[in-house]
Simulated assay, not measured.
Amino acid sequence: MRSSSNIKIKTIFWDVGGVLLTNGWDRGQRKEVLTRLGVDLADYESRHEEANYFWERGLSTAEHFFNLTVLNQNPNITFSELWPQVCAESKILHPESLDILGKLGTSSRYKLATLNNESRELNEHRLDAFRLRPFFDYFICSGYVHEMKPHPEIYRAAIEISGHLAETALFIDDNVENCIAAGSLGMRAIRFESPTQLRDELAQLGLRAA
């Protein structure tokens, strides 16, 4: 039987928030936006987790999510006022990571896909605002497949959609728990720490991004 080191990578799955962009609606972004709007953060957080379970899995809309968590308690704030501020919190995190992504894409030796936890609306905004769509062949997002990392089902969906064995997939994510979950299903994983570290680990796998 061939060792995994001799199996060629056919698909590279990328996390988005924490690798290419800032996170979409994490604690830092929530604090920035909601403090500016005068929302009680502790009150908001008491409702966030339950509502977010459905939103990030694509089972509710952004407007419904924010009605439950912010707008019903703060009638002076409207969704049309809030949503642009939520979107504006997204930034490019590491331009060098985008350079690596682009170099791997131009090689045409691998399929490139996202594998990220994100609500449908934020995912689509970020793909468009930062012109990420041309980099990828397809998108595995919790808002589309209705499950989130590190649950095994989102990785199984990614593997099945790729059309290749798990052993031919490489997953890049900044969260160690997500990387462990991918590895448990046979995927290879790199825990992202910096663009330089990522480039070095890719080179060790024979994937040149320079």
Rank of each mutant, 00 (worst) to 15 (best):
D137Q: 08
Y138K: 02
F139E: 15
F139M: 13
F139W: 07
I140G: 01
I140V: 15
C141R: 11
S142V: 07
S142W: 03
S142I: 06
S142F: 03
G143C: 05
G143M: 05
G143Q: 05
Y144E: 12
Y144N: 11
V145D: 07
V145F: 14
V145I: 13
H146V: 08
H146E: 09
E147R: 10
E147F: 01
M148R: 14
M148W: 02
K149E: 01
K149I: 06
K149Q: 04
K149S: 03
K149H: 03
K149T: 03
K149L: 02
P150H: 06
H151T: 13
H151E: 15
P152L: 04
E153S: 15
E153T: 13
Y155T: 09
Y155V: 10
R156G: 00
R156P: 00
R156I: 06
R156N: 05
A157V: 15
I159H: 04
I159A: 05
E160D: 13
I161E: 15
I161L: 14
I161P: 05
I161M: 15
I161F: 13
I161S: 11
S162L: 07
G163P: 09
G163N: 12
G163F: 09
H164I: 11
H164G: 02
H164K: 11
H164N: 13
L165M: 10
A166S: 14
E167A: 15
E167K: 13
E167F: 08
T168H: 08
T168P: 00
L170S: 08
L170Y: 08
L170W: 07
L170I: 06
F171L: 10
F171V: 13
F171P: 06
I172N: 03
D173Y: 00
D174W: 05
D174G: 06
D174P: 05
D174E: 05
